[in-house]
Amino acid sequence: MSLLVYTENWDGKFKKLSFELITYARKVADQLGTEVSVVSIGNVADDELLKLGSYGADKILKVEDDRLNVLINRAYSSIITQVADNINADIVLFAHNFSGKAIAPRVAVKLKAGAVTGVTNVPSSLDPFTVKKMVFTNKAYADVIVKSSKKVLTLFQNSLGVEENPKPAAIEVFTPKLDDDDFKTKVTETKKITGKVLLTDAEVVVSGGRGMKNPDNWKPLEELAEVLGAATACSRPVSDEGWRPHEEHVGQTGKIIAPNLYFALGISGAIQHLGGVSSSKHIVAVNTDKDAPIFESADYGIVGDVHKVLPELVSKIKELKASQG
């Protein structure tokens, strides 16, 4: 038994998502009594790679190639499969995000591995190999048995958190075989939104719905996000109206998130919205309608006008932060 993790980097840096993935891999490897090997693709400095050792990585295989600084599904899948074959990995782990969803299915086919995506816990049994995953967009969970000897899993974010478990990680260079067919897809332009907290990596998310009434009312919401170091999000009607960009839409057909704290401001809580946010650890709802369904899913609620509550909330949280120094 051996275990391989693929973690991406963001301009040469890892995020909490990466460390959570290594934490998870360490726990599974300990169950199996094996090592955690990690494959990193693209340019990452060695001191950054060594950070993965703090969370339990034993071995880091780095693949550097200037053509690989953007995600090319076919090339990445080929590399990860070559590494998996090289170390004879039985389990290959990905994050359940943009890159994991793009590559994991291809790697699963190459390895003829059963794949389970959006896994929320360590295996409950090794024989048969059984893991829990979200189904029906957060409305239920399923135990899935993987029947094949090789397995591919993607980990749902913020399922287990991050734990340090330092290992003297060794870095090795891995040189894959790639051909022109692997690069038939070309990235011609990249646009990055800078200075914003990533919605899928955020500890705190501040989200506005139709109750915000008007796109000009978003300033205090953005201020709350700034005070808390939070990402901003919105409900579907808000992105459909064009009040906010659609990458902020959280819900069944938008992004599915699981932050530690989620603020639903002027969001009534339609079942499709709850599907995208109900894995949040704590939900705060502010809504004028005391019968809004969001209060059934919230931990803390205020019945009131979001335009009055929000500035007050910002000022009280600022006071709290100031008193903490």
């Binding site: 239920a140 094949s148 059934e296």
Partner: peptide, 22 residues
């Protein structure tokens, strides 16, 4: 098929929302 569903469960019921005065 390489995987199969062994069973399903619904999320545990949520504790009652704590209401705070506006």
């Amino acid at each position: 098929a390489l995987t199969e569903f062994a069973g399903f469960e619904l999320p545990p019921p949520k504790a009652k929302c704590k209401m705070v005065d506006a």
